[in-house]
């Protein structure tokens, strides 16, 4: 399976994402510069964390207007897995690939530590290797991770089981403790915590690895016929 890690000016978790896909997972992965990439050759698209365009205007807002985001939309419509972590999540929100928006953390601080998460929906291509309701621990590192949406959108997210991860001890003020959501089709996941930073014991935990394994397992089931 071949992963694309999209690099924007200001991305700074791109190497971690690349490492997770290439070394921890053992799959093919390439770092692709946002201006030159052709995404049709890849099986999955990873949007890393960081501070694209220095967070100018709003987090993710400037990156969301780049041409590659149009391409990401096309690939997402084809059903390919798209994972946006942290700034990647913010870009997906600004691009309208996921509903809602990000606000400053409730305490106005940049928060950076391991946080407990509950797997609310294991029936996605990103979470099938987890147990239902499993409590996991992943690092968070953000100043604007306070997820917000209006009441009608929240109801829809709940009805369609689009809330994938919630915080066990809400660190940033997110509505309904939301840490990660998928789109209605289930192939675009945005989350603030960093699974790519928890793929080896030496990094402090391996709870993020199952997310990447889920992507690969589901892709293999759909695309590789057993001999």
């Amino acid at each position: 399976m071949k992963f694309a890690v999209v690099v924007f000016p200001g991305s700074n978790c791109d190497r971690d994402m690349y490492f997770a896909a290439k070394d921890a997972l053992g799959e093919e992965a390439e770092l692709v510069w946002y201006q030159t990439a052709n995404l049709s050759d890849y099986d999955a698209i990873l949007l890393p964390g960081g501070f694209s365009y220095g967070d100018y205007l709003r987090t993710g807002a400037i990156a969301s207007t780049s041409h590659i985001v149009k391409e990401i939309k096309q690939q997402a419509e084809l059903g390919k897995p798209v994972l946006g972590v942290c700034n990647g999540f913010q870009i997906l929100l600004e691009a309208g690939l996921l509903p809602g928006a990000m606000l400053r953390n409730k305490n106005l601080k940049f928060i950076c530590h391991f946080e407990g998460l509950k797997v609310e929906n294991k029936n996605t291509m990103f979470t099938s290797a987890y147990k239902d309701g499993e409590i996991i621990s992943l690092p968070i590192a953000h100043g604007e991770g306070n997820y917000y949406c209006d009441e009608a959108t929240l109801q829809k997210l709940k009805e369609n089981n689009q809330i994938v991860f919630t915080y066990t001890n809400n660190p940033n003020g997110s509505i309904s403790d939301i840490a990660g959501i998928v789109n209605q089709q289930g192939n675009v996941l945005g989350m603030m915590p960093h699974p790519e930073r928890a793929v080896e014991q030496i990094l402090g935990g391996t709870d993020g690895l199952k997310l990447f394994k889920s992507i690969v397992n589901n892709w293999r089931e759909a695309h590789v016929t057993s001999a």
């Binding site: 606000l103 400053r104 917000y148």
Partner: peptide, 14 residues
């Protein structure tokens, strides 16, 4: 401006 009803922690600190 932030919509009325949307929490503005920065405004509150000010």
């Amino acid at each position: 401006t932030l919509k009325q009803g949307v929490l503005d922690p920065q405004g509150r600190a000010v």
